[in-house]
Design a protein around this nucleic acid. Structure first.
Lengths: 226, 226
DNA sequence: CCTGCGTTCTTTGTATACACTGATGGCACG
DNA sequence: CGTGCCATCAGTGTATACAAAGAACGCAGG
């Protein structure tokens, strides 16, 4: 694999998983030493991260990990709602009902997946991801899918602000099942509405749980101040 | 100004204004010679263009100007509709009515701007751009604005496929005026509906006029085949 | 004549040296 | 003691040399 890709992937996951906190300065020389590659691929990786919005060029001098906070949650979900509601509508018009009927079945029974011992809820999240993938495929719109993909990066990042409790996940599965059912029925109005409802619940839950965690996530202003 | 920025700006406008046609191979050495800079800033520019979707990495070997055609028009307008309808809704809820009342007035009288001698319709397009800016400001959502900004690049590019005739511009001005009025009235449902209507007319017009021009825009497959 | 392999060549990927710019700290002057 | 200027320096911006990988072409064998 190319060194620039490795550097990009490493930095990307570091930022998304909060090992690199907002405001952290990403110095080229420091990173090139830490990752064991020269500055050239590092620059390429930083450019990609900046384009993605995970980092920002700092007024000519270096790039820093971009800020993200509860304020951004509202904005993020506004965009998410715009994109996912429309995607759900279009999927209802264009999708193969059989595919979404199957997904509906699985999601309706997703409670079983949550009783397992896996603390990462891998099977559960995979199933939800499959719904997203199916919607994307049914919509068949490159530009819309690209916009959603860009958005999801930030969603993953902000999701780390909260913990997912089983009760919420069970509810979320039901909401997803409702969306899948509406799409299977070819009912775009309901699909859109169900998506709106689901996103509202999700946002409220995130705001509720994140508020408890946030204090400990307030960092020192980027570079060690004694 | 930095060399990488100059290279980026030059290539970007070359692509948007169809001086570089889809499928054109963007070789690093060739570009570095043509633009008089070394390969390093060229690489940076190409990375930015790829992130924007104006160019695409060609399976390991170089990047090419990305394709855009009438098929993409549908997809582009689907995303545009999703974003702009929601933006209009939010602007209706949050915008300063006075601002949009003024814009409504100006747009209602935009017919006067079209009688002028300027063939580029500078004043007209500036007024429309002001509406976009006002909506963006009223929405106040960084992520939504960013998504719209990314989208508009492609819209400008595809717009070059068609010519704008005065009759259509006059109608478009009325449609824009209707949107501005709905926002000024704080009526989000009407603002969204008016946007939907406007985009539908625009798309139909583009498809209608572009069809005539497209044949002459079918290029040889990238590299001269005898 | 077609097919498969090997060589060569073009083009990108990476490393590194150098230039330049903006910041920071100290020193001198008011 | 405060302020402003200058020097030093850290760190990015650019150029270029070298390495590696993929593609195209030609040649040989069937």
């Amino acid at each position: 694999m190319r060194a620039s890709e490795r550097a990009y992937a490493a930095l990307r996951s570091d930022i998304i998983e909060w090992r690199l906190t907002p405001g952290t300065v990403l110095g080229e020389v420091e990173l090139s030493e830490r990752l064991g590659v020269s500055r050239t691929p590092i620059r390429e990786a930083l450019a990609k991260l900046s384009a993605e919005g995970l980092a920002q060029p700092q007024s000519g001098r270096g790039v820093v990990v971009s800020e993200i906070s509860l304020d951004h949650l509202d904005e993020l979900f506004e965009l998410r709602s715009a994109l996912e509601c429309r995607a759900a509508e279009l999927a209802a018009q264009r999708g193969d009902p059989a595919v979404f009927r199957v997904l509906h079945e699985q999601l309706a029974n997703a409670g079983e997946l949550l009783t397992s011992e896996d603390p990462t809820r891998h099977d559960y999240y995979q199933l939800v991801a499959e719904l997203d993938t199916a919607v994307d495929a049914a919509v068949g719109n490159h530009y819309l899918n690209q916009a959603l993909k860009n958005l999801r990066v930030h969603l993953v990042r902000v999701r780390r602000l909260s913990q997912d409790n089983p009760a919420r996940l069970r509810d979320a599965a039901r909401e997803h099942a409702a969306i899948a059912l509406a799409i299977a029925n070819g009912n775009s109005a309901v699909a859109s509405a169900a998506t709106t409802v689901h996103l509202d619940y999700s946002l409220r839950h995130l705001l509720g749980t994140a508020a408890k965690e946030l204090p400990q996530l307030r960092f020192p202003p980027a570079k060690g101040s004694s």
